[in-house]
């Protein structure tokens, strides 16, 4: 089993999420942030990393989750409001 695959996948997903975020594709960004965190969490829980590496990954997860929550709130509000740009 290649231990680096999941970590690399997580990094790729997070990178894509940031791209979509920047491009204002918030639904896609939200989805990708969630997936990235899932992979990061898997790495932390099931794949051997040093303590510092783990904590660094956890901190990243916290940031992505925070951002994802904000996107989710924004999308919820957008859903409720009529789709008319101001």
């Amino acid at each position: 089993a290649n231990n680096n695959n999941n970590l690399q996948k997580a990094i790729d997903l997070a990178s894509k999420a940031a791209q979509e975020d920047k491009a204002e594709n918030y639904e896609e960004a939200l989805r990708l942030y969630q997936h990235a965190v899932q992979y990061f969490l898997h790495v932390v829980k099931y794949e051997a990393q040093g303590d510092k590496a783990k904590q660094s990954i956890r901190a990243k997860c916290a940031e992505y989750l925070d951002r994802a929550e904000k996107l989710k709130e924004y999308l919820k509000k957008k859903e409720k409001a009529p789709a008319k740009p101001v």
């Binding site: 939200l30 904590q55 916290a62 940031e63």
Partner: peptide, 24 residues
């Protein structure tokens, strides 16, 4: 503040927030 929370977050807390995100 948010930064120190991020620095010390636990696996369980990450999981909790991830689940919360997944729920509509």
């Amino acid at each position: 503040p948010a930064k120190s929370k991020a620095a010390t977050i636990s696996d369980a807390e990450i999981e909790r927030q991830l689940k919360a995100l997944g729920m509509d």
